[in-house]
């Protein structure tokens, strides 16, 4: 028996409850709490997943007479791994994710620290920062397309005012992906900043006061205290942002439609074409599972230390 149960057994509440004196154990109580969420997840997340798995193992060509065809084993996975456009899309997705998420994390943390130290207009600034986030990428992507336009766009107008050469933001094969990344940074940096700020504000004061008494330098405080204590929040934001950046779709759709050529064709956009233009759900599902596998492995590694620490914390209680 661990501490929880010992505590639970001896608690006066336990003794006083229930007409028949029969009370749920802590274990059942905790399971009861997660049951509604688990039912929803099991039915509406796992059922479609099994559905997709079924597709991935069959020959499925929905717009032809084949329909949902016979089982073909791992053929679809083999197809995906041999498909060089799949690898191209993977590369684009990785470049996008690494660039966007690292800038968003860096800039977001910077903004969070800035706001933390600011004294006036904090609430106003925070609300204003929420604005890019509050716009649908399907809509603001189009607005940005307008702003990026080489002939009529406002960004090129600024460049021309400064006497700089005008750029073909979304049309040049070298600039298109960075332009999409800038859009993502615009939209998601505030998300990082606001959550990190929330984390900063919830840090306990005492260790910092003690450090100051010891005459620790700002750098030492940051390295020894602030970042270690913030690390759960940072890890969480990092993982959430990475998962969503890997799945980027709306922004690509409205900004570039994957173009020019295939320069900004991310994995999910490629998937979209295979699944909903060609209706080859077998191949689309297989790619989706490869994608899921890689994402799980990645986030598993990143989150392992976090979940372990959390588990230990809970166990200590």
């Amino acid at each position: 028996m661990n501490d929880i149960e010992r505590f639970a057994d001896s608690s006066p509440a336990r003794l006083g409850r229930g007409k028949k004196g029969k009370v749920l154990s802590d274990a059942w109580f905790s399971v009861l709490l997660i049951t509604p969420a688990m039912i929803i997840i099991f039915f509406f997340a796992l059922y479609p997943l099994f559905y997709a798995l079924n597709f991935a193992l069959r020959h499925v060509d929905l717009t032809t007479a084949v329909g949902v065809g016979p089982l073909v084993g791992l053929d679809n996975f083999r197809f995906a791994l041999n498909d060089r456009f799949f690898w191209h899309a993977t590369k684009v997705t990785l470049i996008f994710t690494i660039a966007a998420v690292s800038v968003e994390m860096g800039l977001g943390i910077g903004i969070a620290f800035l706001l933390y130290q600011v004294r006036w207009f904090k609430g106003v600034i925070r609300s204003l920062l929420l604005l890019p986030l509050a716009t649908a990428p399907a809509a603001t992507g189009l607005i940005w397309r307008h702003m990026y336009h080489p002939d009529f766009g406002v960004y090129n107008y600024f460049l021309s005012l400064l006497g700089l050469p005008e750029l073909n933001w979304l049309g040049s094969i070298n600039l298109a992906l960075p332009s999409v990344i800038v859009f993502d940074i615009w939209q998601w940096t505030p998300f990082v900043a606001l959550i990190v700020l929330a984390g900063l504000q919830s840090l306990p004061r005492e260790p910092f006061e003690a450090a100051e008494l010891d005459g620790a330098s700002t750098w030492q405080v940051l390295r020894r205290l602030t970042f270690p204590m913030l690390s759960p929040v940072l890890t969480l934001v990092f993982v959430l942002r990475t998962i969503d950046a890997l799945r980027l779709y709306d922004a690509v759709y409205s900004l570039t439609s994957g173009g020019p050529g295939t320069v900004t064709e991310t994995l999910t956009y490629y998937l979209y074409r295979i699944g909903l233009k060609f209706f080859r759900m077998d191949r689309a599902s297989a790619i989706a599972f490869l994608f899921l596998y890689v994402t799980i492995v990645f986030s598993g590694i990143v989150l392992r230390s976090l979940t372990r620490a959390q588990s230990e914390r809970a166990r200590r209680l």
Partner: peptide
């Protein structure tokens, strides 16, 4: 985690899995 706890949630998981298997995906 206590054996008791682990047991409890395992039971739930298994039950849900069974329920799920009953309505396993039928092709189209």
């Amino acid at each position: 985690m206590s054996p008791n706890l682990r047991c409890a949630w395992l039971v739930v998981v298994v039950l849900l899995m069974l329920g799920l298997a009953a309505c396993a995906p039928a092709p189209t």
